[in-house]
Every structure is written in C-alpha cells, then in structure tokens.
C-alpha cells in the first residue's frame, strides 16, 4: 500500500502489523416483549491497524449491532472489544462514526456542523478551523461552508458527515451503511472518494454494507456474517491492487471474490 499518511494516530501504520480492533467472543441478546432475540453469537474478529474491513450479511444479521458495540454505543451481552489494545467501555475520542443518515444539524451551516466535535471538546483553536477547512476541501465541499444542510444533495451531506467524523483524527473510523440511502451513481463516486480519503488518513475502517460489490471494491478483508443470530461465516481476503479504480471490479479476481461471498449468503438462503 502506498498510502500517503498525513498524521493522526494511524501514522505510519502498515496493515497486518499492529492490532487495530480485537473482538473476542462478543454476543448480543436483545430482550423484547416477545422474548429474547439473539442478534450476535460469539463473534471473534481481528482487524489490523490501518486496514479497511467490511461487514456484509443479510438484513438483521447483527452487523450494525457489532459495529455499535465496537463504537461503544452498545454493550455486548458477552465477550470483549479492544481498540488499539484498550478495552472499549463507551465512545472514545479516537473514534469517528458515520451513520446511515448524515445526521447534520439543520440549524447549523456545513462549517458549524463539521466543527461540532471541536465545539463539544471546547477546542476554539485556529488549528481546528484549519482542519475543518482542509477536510472540506479534501471531500470537495470547499465553497459550501456557509450553506445549510438542506441546500445540499444527499451525497454532499454524507461527505460533510464524513468530514465531521474525521475532525478528531480518529484512529478508528466506523461506518454504518453510510451510502445505503444514495443512488447508485453517487454511491460509486463516494466509494472512490472514501478510498482516497482513507488512504490519506490511514484510519482503521470498519464498514457495514448490504452491497457485496461495494465491500469488495473498498476492503482489505470482507467479513461475511450469517443471518440471525449473526456469526462469522467467512473472512474473505481481498488482494486487489491499490489504489483501486472501478476497472478493478471487471477483473476475474474481483468476480471470483464477489461470487464467493454471494455463495456464502445464498447457501443460507438469507440474502436481504
């Protein structure tokens, strides 16, 4: 990987060397009125620092739940999660999260929205403002700082959400189906941009998606989860050369990986 690393805790990371995320025996059971629902069953997962790992699986397989547990937004019913060697007991400063919806605050301009992490951290430094400006430029939103979210398209809103997640220089970037609500064309553009930004920040990235091709295009490893209760069926190593362009998806290797993942999901008859 020839990533140009621009600082942050991920600096100098080489995938496969340092532990990024270690998930050990994590399970999750939701209590509902209709009885207990087992969402995750004993998941073990190792993500090397700096790697891009996708979680795919049928609807309701608990992939978002797993992501939320790693993020510290939910606690597992059992097992443990270590990020950069430290147990996760809640959201952390070195985590960045992008949700399915952009979740921009409609009363704040784009600039104020991406400055929200700095505002919460009471960081009024010019460096924070500079970082916001730089990141907005990185995602092509320069010139839109003073617009309000509703004036931007869905894709542009999600770029702003990505900038907000990157403001704290996260060593771990968690993305929960971030492009699921976008049209196919915008989604492809966003995928390419995400890869470019990921290679520049070097953050370990955990990416939940429904789309097999999106997962193959983006990832170093695609983790395939089964239907409820979610357990890991396969971890598919994607050795397609980087930097990737859409052409890579035409290659026989990409086709082989895609069909391997699809095979796992169809074997269970559980594709959402």
């Amino acid at each position: 990987m020839t990533a140009q690393v621009t600082g942050g805790p991920g600096t100098g990371a080489v995938p496969g060397v340092l532990p990024g995320v270690q998930v050990a025996g994590v399970s999750k059971t939701f209590r509902t009125n209709a009885g207990d629902v087992e969402a995750l069953a004993e998941v073990d997962l190792e993500v090397p620092q700096g790697a891009f790992v996708s979680l795919v699986g049928p609807s309701g397989c608990g992939k978002s739940t797993l992501l939320r547990i790693v993020a510290g937004l939910e606690t597992g019913s059992g097992g443990s999660v270590l990020v950069a060697g430290t147990p996760v007991d809640g959201p952390r400063k070195d985590f960045g999260m992008v949700f399915q919806q952009p979740v921009l605050l409609p009363w704040l301009t784009i600039f104020r929205n991406v400055m929200l992490p700095a505002q919460v951290a009471r960081d009024r430094s010019p460096q924070a403002r500079q970082r916001a400006t730089d990141l907005l430029e990185l995602v092509g939103l320069d010139g839109f700082q003073h617009r309000y979210p509703r004036e931007l398209s869905g894709g542009m809103q999600q770029r702003a959400a990505l900038v907000r997640a990157l403001m704290s220089r996260p060593s771990l970037l968690l993305m929960d189906e971030p492009f699921g609500a976008l049209d196919a064309l915008t989604r492809e553009t966003m995928n390419a941009e995400l890869l470019r930004i990921w290679s520049e920040t070097g953050a370990t990235t955990l990416f939940v998606t429904h789309s097999i091709s999106e997962a193959v295009f983006l990832s170093d490893v695609v983790v395939v989860l089964s239907g409820r209760p979610g357990r890991i069926l396969d971890q598919v190593q994607v050795d397609l050369p980087r930097p990737r362009t859409f052409d890579v998806m035409e290659s026989p290797e990409a086709a082989r990986l895609t069909s391997r993942i699809r095979g796992h999901l169809h074997a269970r008859g559980a594709v959402g």
Binding site: L73, P91, M97, Q100, V103, Q119, V120, A121
Partner: peptide, 22 residues
C-alpha cells in the same frame, strides 16, 4: 432522533451540552 443522540454520544458530549446544542 436516536441518530442525533448517538451522534452526541459519539462526540462524548455532556448532558448539558446535548441539552443546549441539540
């Protein structure tokens, strides 16, 4: 919304900040 509250939690906003900001 739940997403908005999740966002404030991810940013580690205090209750007081969540109250005034959100």
């Amino acid at each position: 919304t739940r997403e908005q509250r999740d966002l404030m939690r991810v940013l580690q906003a205090s209750e007081w900040q969540t109250f005034w900001i959100l």
